[in-house]
């Protein structure tokens, strides 16, 4: 890594993410994205649906429908979370046209697949709204409040403490 420039080589400032792929349709993985509570030291494809068979557990927690599945002998409890309206999840890959340049130095990404929900799995505990990952969804509401355009009427109805004014 480069000493100066805050630790990033100059090329790094050219990170791009291409979600549209020029209108080309990408695979829809809705219902097939699983976040497991482990790190699998493998990157590639495998026959997930032949081996990983989630079933409804008959339990509901925090309004979440709890599913169960087994991986490497461990029992996992999961819940499927829909992404809020206006949001999509994407599986990114290094842009294929950049293969001629070294993949290691390329920071151009493109969407290989998209999804509208994902299933979050816990080992040894039931999913709940207090799970760290669930809590990241709080950001959606905060972001909306922060970025929603403010117009004159909104300002007029702002609850202002009159004594101070």
């Amino acid at each position: 890594m480069d000493g100066g420039n805050e630790g990033y080589p100059l090329l790094r400032s050219q990170t791009t993410v291409d979600l549209s792929r020029n209108g080309e349709a990408v695979a829809d993985l809705t219902g097939k994205v699983h976040l497991l509570p482990c790190c699998i030291k493998y990157d590639g494809s495998t026959s997930v649906s032949d081996y990983f068979k989630p079933k409804f557990s008959g339990i509901e927690v925090d309004g979440l429908r709890v599913e169960e599945a087994y991986f490497r002998g461990r029992k996992l409890n999961g819940a499927t979370l829909p992404l809020p309206d206006g949001y999509s999840g994407f599986i990114l890959g290094k842009k294929s046209s950049d293969e001629k340049t070294n993949a290691e130095t390329s920071y151009c990404w493109e969407a290989n697949a998209k999804f509208q929900n994902l299933t979050l799995w816990n080992h040894d505990s039931l999913p709940s709204n207090d799970d760290a990952f669930m809590r990241t969804f709080h950001w959606f509401a905060v972001a909306k409040a922060l970025h929603q355009p403010v117009n004159v009427e909104d300002l007029e109805y702002l609850p202002v403490d009159e004594d101070v004014v």
Partner: peptide, 27 residues
Amino acid sequence: IFGFPTLVRFSWGTCTSYSKDMVEVLW
């Protein structure tokens, strides 16, 4: 990736001898 079908008792010592053929998983 998956180790074995779920018929197998993964907690048995026998399974550890197959771990060299399997991708490592950290929990």
